[in-house]
Amino acid sequence: MSWTSILAIYFLFWVASAFVLLPFGVKTHEELGIERVPGQADSAPANFRPLRIVVGATLLSAALTALYVANYVNGWITTDDLLALY
């Protein structure tokens, strides 16, 4: 597998990981007891921290990419194994 393929797979895992991690740890103004801005949605986050999402997505996608490449090299789960499930 070429390094460009690994980089592309890492990027795909990173984007998916970022979307998965977005709702964790976010609280609304009501949950934190902070006054809302007039016209603000009730569900708007009060403590959104994008750096935390970026770091978490980077670590999670690195682990998932490492597992993917290890599976590719060692052949732990093949397409034949997946087709045998059906």
Rank of each mutant, 00 (worst) to 15 (best):
Asn74Lys: 13
Thr58Pro: 08
Ala44Gln: 03
Phe11Leu: 15
Thr4Tyr: 13
Arg52Met: 14
Ala16Cys: 01
Ser17Pro: 13
Thr65Asp: 08
Gly33Asn: 01
Ala44Ile: 03
Pro50Trp: 15
Tyr72Leu: 08
Val15Trp: 10
Asp81Glu: 03
Val26Trp: 02
Gly56Phe: 15
Gly39Asp: 12
Thr65Cys: 13
Val69Ala: 08
Ala66Gly: 12
Val55Arg: 00
Pro38Gln: 06
Leu32Arg: 00
Trp76His: 04
Glu30Met: 06
Val15Leu: 05
Leu12Ser: 05
Trp14Ala: 01
Ala41Glu: 14
Ser43Asn: 09
His29Gly: 08
Ser17Ala: 15
Leu22Ala: 12
Gly75Trp: 10
Arg49Ala: 14
Ile9His: 04
Ala84Phe: 03
Pro23Glu: 07
Ser43Cys: 05
Tyr10Met: 11
Leu32Thr: 00
Ile77Cys: 01
Glu31Ala: 13
Tyr68Leu: 13
Glu35His: 02
Leu82Met: 02
Ala46Thr: 06
Ala16Gln: 05
Gly75Glu: 10
Arg52Asn: 08
Phe19Val: 09
Ala57Pro: 07
Ala62Asp: 04
Pro45Tyr: 11
Leu32Phe: 02
Thr78Lys: 08
Tyr68Asp: 13
Thr65Glu: 06
Thr58Arg: 03
Leu51Gln: 11
Glu30Gln: 07
Gly56His: 14
Thr4Leu: 12
Asn47Trp: 05
Tyr86His: 05
Thr65Met: 01
Ile6Tyr: 07
Trp3Glu: 11
Leu22Glu: 14
Ala44Tyr: 09
Thr4Gln: 09
Val37Thr: 04
Ala44Arg: 04
Thr28Pro: 12
Leu82Trp: 06
Arg49Met: 14
Phe13Trp: 04
Thr79Glu: 01
Val15Tyr: 05
Leu51Arg: 14
Ile9Tyr: 02
Glu31Arg: 08
Gln40Asp: 00
Ser61Ala: 14
Ser43Asp: 14
Leu21Ile: 06
Leu83Pro: 03
Thr79Pro: 06
Ser61Arg: 15
Asn74Arg: 10
Tyr10Arg: 00
Gly56Ile: 15
Ile6Trp: 02
Leu21Phe: 11
Asp42Cys: 05
Gly33Phe: 11
Ala66Phe: 09
Tyr68Ala: 14
Tyr86Ala: 09
Ser61Ile: 14
Ala46Lys: 07
Phe11Ile: 15
Leu21Ala: 11
Thr28Cys: 05
Pro23Cys: 04
Glu31Cys: 05
